[in-house]
Design a protein around this nucleic acid. Sequence first.
DNA 1: CCACTAACCTGTAGGC
DNA 2: TGCCTACAGGTTAGTG
Length: 294
Amino acid sequence: MPELPEVETVRRGLAPWLTGARILEVDLRRPDLRFPFPEGFAKALEGATITGVDRRAKYLLVRLSTGHTWLSHLGMTGSYRFEKFTFKEASRYYEPTIVANHDHMLMRLEHPQHGPLHLLYNDPRRFGFMALFRNEADSPFLADLGPEPFSNSFNARDMADRFQKKATPIKAALLDQRVVAGLGNIYVSEALYRAHIRPDVKAQTLVTARGEPSVRLDLLARAVRDVLTEAIEAGGSTLRDFRDADGGSGYFQHSFKVYDREGEPCPTPGCAGVIERIVQSGRSSFFCPVCQTG
DNA sequence: CCACTAACCTGTAGGC
DNA sequence: TGCCTACAGGTTAGTG
């Protein structure tokens, strides 16, 4: 489900409800997601007040008054939702009309303005995970992340340095979270389309002999920022069942130019190409063989 | 060190 | 209808 725009959409949905709320009770309905919940996870959260909700790459970072940060990654199918009901005992959690299949974490909160809140984390495939840390530097998940796409440290010049000797296909290079943080399978295809670059060219072909970024690499850096910006403005993309925390769905999927459009005509004006699908490192890439030449 | 594959897990869509 | 296969937004562990 979630690449950077979807996680950002979730963050924006959660923040106004969670910020300022006090966590009263955390109920883990299984010991693990992709990884085991950290030792003492629930107890560490209970009693804490949430001071803010941030995002880094595809990670949600919930800041707590205790100095801890609660890290949450949604994997492929993770989602949060609020249930508006009141209950007195924890057993009410198990009301089948409230708790759905694959609800793995339940949280009861009290917000000074919004009153009682119930947050549920649902994740059918359990590729998501949660962690707890005090300092960013202590979290192995954040340690090797590359620049945020909207930060100054994400630019064509730094990419050129990284790509200079890289024989890896550009598609794989962009999926590498150490190169740029937050891109996933959809937005890589879309960004490469916008930059007129074939997904299977070697990353090093986008660097000139002098080690400068090529024109297309410049274009690519801009395309990455543009497509992510537009997707965030559209509330992310809804494939299958993506919902933001308010139960809404994004609509950027209607703006996909190539993703999941195998066999369709290339949307570039005047281009007679037909969108192709290839498999790279086990994942689908979509591109126009006519206008993506790079 | 890097690069590639397999694995994690469930649900769904499509072919027969 | 049922059964089977392929595939799905991500990341890590293992192998070479």
